[in-house]
């Protein structure tokens, strides 16, 4: 497949399908995607983690790359953001709803 370039909103849409490895919420709804920028064939994603010791970094990076590869993006740069830090306020309404119900259906 020839490398195609997606625009930024298409990248956001694709990232909405990448789940946090520890719960059924997308990285976007978790508020972990801080910024997406496309320059030529290069896609740059700024990602905020909930903790520096995130045990799932490998999975998150891998899942992002795999998802975007499906769209033909090959040149993907993922940069971690700490300032401003990720906070719970970044979680979307949908994310909050999933968080409040997930696993609590005893």
């Amino acid at each position: 497949m020839l490398p195609t370039t997606l625009n930024e909103s298409q990248i956001w849409e694709a990232l909405k399908e990448v789940e946090d490895p520890e719960m059924p919420i997308s990285l976007v709804d978790m508020g972990m995607v801080f910024d997406v920028s496309v320059e030529g064939a290069n896609t740059k994603i700024q990602l905020g983690l909930t903790a520096t010791a995130c045990p799932a970094i490998d999975f998150i990076f891998y899942d992002i790359r795999e998802r975007l590869k499906k769209e033909g993006c090959e040149d993907i740069e993922i940069e971690l953001v700490w300032d401003p830090p990720w906070t719970k306020e970044r979680i979307s309404e949908e994310g909050r709803f999933i968080l409040s119900t997930w696993g609590l259906s005893v």
């Binding site: 719960m23 999975f59 891998y62 997930w102 696993g103 005893v106």
Partner: peptide, 20 residues
């Protein structure tokens, strides 16, 4: 039963760790 909510949630990550 209630204690297993947290336990089962976390075991899912272990499983994913192994399978992936």
């Amino acid at each position: 039963k209630r204690s297993l909510v947290k336990i089962d949630k976390e075991e899912l990550f272990h499983l994913r760790h192994g399978e992936v």
